[in-house]
Amino acid sequence: MKILKLPKGKLDLFASVVQQFGELHAPVEQDGKYVFKRLARWPDARLEYDRTILPPKKYFLPPRETLFRYRPGEGFVPSTDGLDQRIVLFGVHACDVYAINILDQVFLGKYKDPYYQARRRNIAIIGIDCTPDKQCFCRSMRADFVDHGFDLFFYDTGDYYQALVGTALGDDMVLATGNLFEPVGPADIDAYKERSWNKRRAFHLDVEIRDLSEIFEMEYESGIWDQLGRKCLSCGSCSMVCPTCYCYDVSDDVELGSRAGKRTRSWDSCLYFNHALVASGENFRRDRASRIKFRFYHKQRGFVAEYGRPSCVGCGRCVSACPVNIDTAQVIDRLRRVEDVGSR
């Protein structure tokens, strides 16, 4: 992998050059929190942010998206609205890039999702390293570092950003700046290692995911699920803010006064009552407890069976979003504990 460095003072220059590759989007401050948004001007970008309310998922799998328009006589005509829009996402954290790689496994595996595929191709990602806060457990989820899925990835090493070049497009971005980037030397590598070490030590949370699948199987009937079910409001906030929750619903709407219409998909959540409801009235997860159990089970157990790792990346967003303070790391911790009577 090509590794270069960019003097910090040249970052704004780099940002102005990179705009020729697409509309520049980055975290900006909004009501004391952060959101990924189109930059009106470069100084609005906040690269030292903790976490955005919504993950970059919203760019690749929009909250609402028209899949087809239906016209009598023409059938279902695919909608291509917005798919070719070129965007450069600046300042994506490692866990969020990792989450996009997980979405790739779902949407670009068997039966490729062409809408996702088009967006993934047209949206460039420039990642940036971060310092964990007390909600982050990405290291436990092996998502504190990411080795692919981005075009460029920046590490703050003091006076420079050390840049990993992930794709040919990333390389084009570097070349387009002329000679802003410099080669790295032994001192830069040492600076990176120091940064890496400091990051590792900054974590407050540590959960163990080895053999978690098996513990989930053993604790499937645990009382902890009923306790969580009594607490959970089924609001689905955790799903909305989750960078890897990809469930979606599909609905058809007819235009008033015509037989034409459109087919739309929108984000869904397994915590909603009708997620597993079928037309006959049978609901395979009628109880709230069974739904919140399913969400944990699918992230930490089901996804492992299917794709080889949990789909959780430890970003901590579900903890921030939950109105009743259900804490993923705590739930995993409780499941693992021997002495927790609540789990029987």
Partner: peptide
Amino acid sequence: VGKCGHCSIGYKY
């Protein structure tokens, strides 16, 4: 086709 999530049973679609 294994995307929308609704039909999952345990860990299978």
